[in-house]
C-alpha cells in the first residue's frame, strides 16, 4: 500500500517535469526532432550534461582517418530560441592546430554562418565538422599560420598536427594532449 502510494507520487512528480506549465518553444520542439533523428557516424558521440535541456550539449569527434586520426575533439553546441532560423552557436573546446579553427575555439564552417538554412539539422553540422577534420581547408583560414604550413608543406603540417595532439609547442603555443 505504501509502495503503491509512493509510485503514484513518483508518477505525478514525473508528469510535472514533462509538462512544466508552458508549451515547449518552437526551438525546443524542433531540436527534439533533430535529436530523435540523429544518425551519428561511429566517430561521433553527443553528451547532454542536463537531460532536461536539449538546447545545450557537447559533441565529441574522434576522427579515424586523415591528419587528425586518433585525436579527440570536443565541441559545445548552444541552440538559441531563434533555431532553426538561426544556426546553433558551436565552439571547439579542445585547443587544436587546424586552419579552420582558431585558438579561441571559433569554427569556420560555411553552414554555421552564411550558408545556414533552416532545413539543415544538427546532423548536417555534425557531418560538416567531421569533414573539417578529414579535409582541412587552407583557403579562408581562421588560423593563418596553420593554413600557410598546410599549403606550403603538407608533410610539415602533418608533423605539426601529430606534435600538437601528443601535447607540445607549435611556435609559441602549447597544445594539450588530446590523443585518445
Amino acid at each position: 500500500m505504501i509502495k503503491l502510494f509512493s509510485l503514484k507520487q513518483q508518477k505525478r512528480d514525473g508528469e510535472t517535469v514533462q509538462h512544466p506549465g508552458t508549451r515547449q518553444s518552437a526551438a525546443q520542439l524542433r531540436i527534439q526532432k533533430d535529436i530523435n533523428e540523429l544518425n551519428l557516424p561511429k566517430t561521433c558521440q553527443v553528451d547532454f550534461p542536463d537531460q532536461d535541456d536539449l538546447l545545450t550539449f557537447k559533441l565529441i569527434i574522434s576522427p579515424d582517418e586523415g591528419f587528425y586520426r586518433g585525436g579527440r575533439f570536443s565541441f559545445s553546441f548552444k541552440v538559441g530560441q531563434g533555431y532553426p532560423h538561426e544556426p546553433p552557436k558551436v565552439k571547439c573546446e579542445t585547443l587544436v592546430y587546424h586552419p579552420n579553427i582558431d585558438l579561441e575555439g571559433n569554427v569556420c564552417l560555411n553552414i554555421l554562418r552564411e550558408d545556414w538554412k533552416p532545413v539543415l539539422t544538427v546532423n548536417s553540422i555534425v557531418y560538416g565538422l567531421q569533414y573539417l577534420f578529414l579535409e582541412p581547408n587552407p583557403e579562408d583560414p581562421l588560423n593563418k599560420e596553420a593554413a600557410e604550413v598546410l599549403q606550403s608543406n603538407r608533410r610539415l603540417f602533418e608533423q605539426n598536427v601529430q606534435k600538437s595532439m601528443r601535447g607540445g609547442y607549435i611556435g609559441a603555443i602549447y597544445f594539450d594532449r588530446c590523443l585518445k
Binding site: 518553444s25 518552437a26 520542439l29 524542433r30 526532432k33 533533430d34 532553426p84 532560423h85 533552416p118 532545413v119
Partner: peptide
C-alpha cells in the same frame, strides 16, 4: 515541413 519538421497536416509551432 522542412523548416519546423512538423507534419503538414498539423500546424507550425506558432
Amino acid at each position: 515541413c522542412g523548416i519546423c519538421r512538423m507534419a503538414f497536416d498539423g500546424c507550425c509551432p506558432d
